[in-house]
């Protein structure tokens, strides 16, 4: 039960927020995170087309051996990605709360430009309180 990281990806596939928690996963350079977020954005689109039955959502959870990535897609196309341990069961709930914090601290901030990187102390603080 551990949280390793949080990403926010805008609707164009750009990484607008990235933060690590704890030391469960190694820290990469910001460039590498940008590339991974872009890749994830593409994979999300492809996975919805591979459904063997009916129409499908994009990928929701990706599991490795020691961690998993839970992806939440909002109706506006923003993706929230939470990196946790495989046994974490509350990732969905946490992401929902992150979305609320995002709506309050980022979208209601008149100084924030939509689709641009999130640089807001208020958001940082509330995320720390929620996940840190």
């Amino acid at each position: 039960m551990a949280i390793f990281g949080l990403w926010v990806i805008n609707k164009a596939g750009g990484l607008v927020y990235q933060r690590n928690f704890g030391d469960g996963l190694p820290t990469l350079t910001s460039n590498e995170y940008l590339v991974l977020a872009g890749t994830l954005h593409g994979i999300h689109a492809i996975t919805s087309r591979l459904s063997p039955t009916g129409s499908s959502s994009g990928v929701q959870v990706i599991e490795g051996e020691s961690f998993k990535m839970t992806i939440m897609l909002t109706p506006t196309g923003t993706k929230f990605v939470l990196l946790t341990s495989v046994t974490e069961t509350t990732a969905d709930v946490i992401l929902q709360k992150v979305y609320e914090v995002y709506a309050d601290a980022v979208m209601k901030n008149p100084f924030h430009t939509p689709e641009m990187p999130i640089r807001s102390d208020g958001f940082d603080r509330r995320i720390t309180a929620l996940l840190g």
């Binding site: 990469l28 063997p52 499908s56 990706i62 490795g64």
Partner: peptide
């Protein structure tokens, strides 16, 4: 393409030779 991209992503994120195991969407699991 999806399998290889995810395999590389998991490998990169874990920093070691960790394997990608599975993913799922609303209608299927790979």
């Amino acid at each position: 393409g999806v399998v290889i991209s995810l395999r590389n992503m998991i490998r990169k994120l874990s920093g070691k030779d960790e394997q990608f195991v599975n993913y799922y969407t609303s209608t299927y699991k790979l």
